[in-house]
Amino acid sequence: MTTAPYKGFNMSVIVKCEHLTKSYGDLIAVNDVSFRVEEGEIFGLVGPNGAGKTTLIEMIEGLRTPDSGLIKALGLDPTKQGDELKERIGVLLQTTSIQPDIKVKEALRLFASFYQRAPDNAEELLHTLSLEDKADSRFKKLSGGLKQRVAIALALVNDPEILFLDELTTGLDPQARRNMWDLVETMRTQGKTIFLTTHYMEEAEKLCDRVGIIDYGKIIALDTPRNLVNNLSAESKVTFNIEDKDVATSKFELVGAVSRVEKVEDGIILYTRDGNVTLQELVRLADKQKFRLSNLRTESPSLDDVFLTLTGREMRE
């Protein structure tokens, strides 16, 4: 396989899903979903709890059987060629544990023994995941963040071509979450394709080359985070206070790119089509008119706004 980082074009398709559907009784958990993942990219599925992320990712891993539709992962059909597929993928399940009393290093050795060709990389993995001083600790004694790192180390014992990470950072504190993000970046530079799910928009935006937004079992948008946001044609906000003067809000309507001005309790909000232009002109205006800006900040639209626009609901439950 190639180890080039994602460039967004000319890549080969590594996972392909077509018209995938899976129901549990009356509930359609995944509803006629089609998409592709390209080699070397970080692909993210983002959506609220119960959207169908786990069902979808576990069908690709061969853990659940679709009712209908087609899946090819590494050119293999997970339901029929699951054994071969499992040799070549690494999986972090949403909720799993390993044997509570097993020591970290023992677990790495044990899991490596299940694969036909597993590099002898236990030491290296312990190092990459900063687990060296936990090598002899029992799994059950570790904190949530450390457990998650062990789970990732286990997903890497066979040097997989695709890494599936279901809810990588759910339940982790901010520091541990940041560490995970760095790890994902590191793994990408090693040429692995990463397929992750999250219900944090911020995480998807930060990590993913392409994001599929999933809601009620359907992928309702799929693109790079930047394109998703740009296609919204939503406006940025420039917010500030004026400390020493009373300036008429009408003055700001003439500032470049501003479409609307709003006076709120804690300041003034300019809605703008181009935050940079507005910011520059605003500062110039303040200089000329001799008033002082404070608390100046800009807010660009985010994936949260994309979700809100598409579904009419806030992402947070």
């Binding site: 499992k86 040799e87 399940l93 799993t96 044997q99 899991f111 299940f114 286990l154």
Partner: peptide, 18 residues
């Protein structure tokens, strides 16, 4: 039962272990 409840069996199932 402990392994099933904790998801250990499921984790083993995504390896090539038969």
């Amino acid at each position: 039962t402990t392994y099933r409840e904790a998801g250990v069996l499921k984790r083993l199932r995504v390896t090539p272990l038969r």
